[in-house]
């Protein structure tokens, strides 16, 4: 039962489920941060997406519509971040924190009012096979990579994130790109949330995002702000939590394995394993 082969097989089965929501959210972070907007609201946006999907599915029994509404919700939340960061020149970290607090409160409030019971929704119609979303996530890694590095839009976006004034003088609309990137990032993070709710479990429960947004943020940094790097980091983190599920009861306490992504990220940004350097203007407000 515990031959390496069987372990590998078991891990291979859990890993995509662990990795998929992280990859969506991390890709969202990659896009947003390449455009120069730090998004620490991934956690909140995931929760918002997860919740919106379940409510929609609960009311309409239409899973595709549910995912669509989740994406719209993520875009709306990201638009708030973008508006305060861009139009109000607010500190992006502060706004991200505010959105996390706001969204976690709002979803809990709405669970109570919409479902008449706090804590969790009832079971709702969900995707029959959530692996579809895993393939979507993997495809998006390639798509985002191609867009970022092989298209004009991507070059413009990275230019905006690196040196917005240079981009502006080249005729690129910095503010529009930053809005678009942040909002697209929100859409992806919300997809990650929808994967958790209508994809994997078919319910919404307060606290179900359980820190995945912050792990995704860690993956963005650990993956050096590139789609493949971030997705690889997500897979790496997912590998450890999958091993933890499969091999539980080993010598290492569960908490230590769960800590790993966070510790590795600290190590990564401290520069111990190759410096993690963000886009030059990531988090820096742009004013014309």
């Amino acid at each position: 039962m515990s031959t390496p082969w069987l372990i590998a097989l078991a891990v291979a089965k859990v890993l995509p489920k662990k990795a998929t929501p992280l990859i969506f959210a991390a890709l969202g972070g990659v896009i947003s941060e390449n455009g120069g907007i730090v998004n620490i609201a991934l956690e909140g946006i995931m929760a918002g997406g997860a919740f919106a999907a379940v409510v929609t599915s609960y009311r309409t029994h239409d899973v595709v519509l549910a995912i669509f509404v989740a994406v719209l919700t993520g875009m709306a939340l990201a638009a708030v971040l973008a508006y305060f960061a861009l139009a109000q020149s607010a500190d992006q970290i502060v706004v991200g924190m505010a959105i996390n607090i706001l969204t976690l409160g709002m979803t809990a409030y709405l669970v109570s009012t919409v479902f008449g019971q706090p804590g969790a929704s009832p079971e709702v119609p969900g995707l029959r096979n959530e692996a579809v979303l895993t393939w979507v996530a993997l495809a998006l890694v390639v798509v985002v990579h191609v867009i970022l590095y092989r298209t004009r839009i991507g070059i413009h976006l990275r230019a905006v994130g690196e040196e917005p004034r240079a981009a502006a003088t080249a005729g690129i609309n910095v503010v529009a790109y930053r809005y678009a990137a942040t909002i697209a990032g929100g859409a992806l993070a919300a997809l990650g949330g929808a994967y958790l709710s209508v994809g994997e479990t078919h319910i919404y429960s307060d606290g179900m995002v359980a820190g995945r947004g912050f792990i995704a943020l860690a993956a963005v940094i650990f993956g050096k702000w590139t789609p493949f790097g971030a997705a690889g980091a997500c897979a790496f983190f997912a590998l450890f939590s999958s091993l933890q599920i499969v091999l539980q009861g080993g010598a290492v306490p569960a908490q230590f394995l769960e800590m790993l992504p966070y510790l590795l990220t600290i190590v990564a940004i401290a520069g111990f394993i190759g410096r993690a350097r963000p886009p030059a203007s990531d988090g820096v407000p742009y004013e014309r």
């Binding site: 298209t151 004009r152 070059i155 413009h156 990275r158 230019a159 690196e162 040196e163 004034r165 240079a166 981009a167 003088t169 080249a170 005729g171 690129i172 030059a280």
Partner: peptide
């Protein structure tokens, strides 16, 4: 106003990329 991590060609053609 140059983007350090871009190549010379990418900087020169920024906004007018050849596709």
């Amino acid at each position: 106003l140059l983007i350090d991590r871009f190549t010379v060609a990418e900087n020169v053609l920024l906004g007018r990329e050849r596709t």
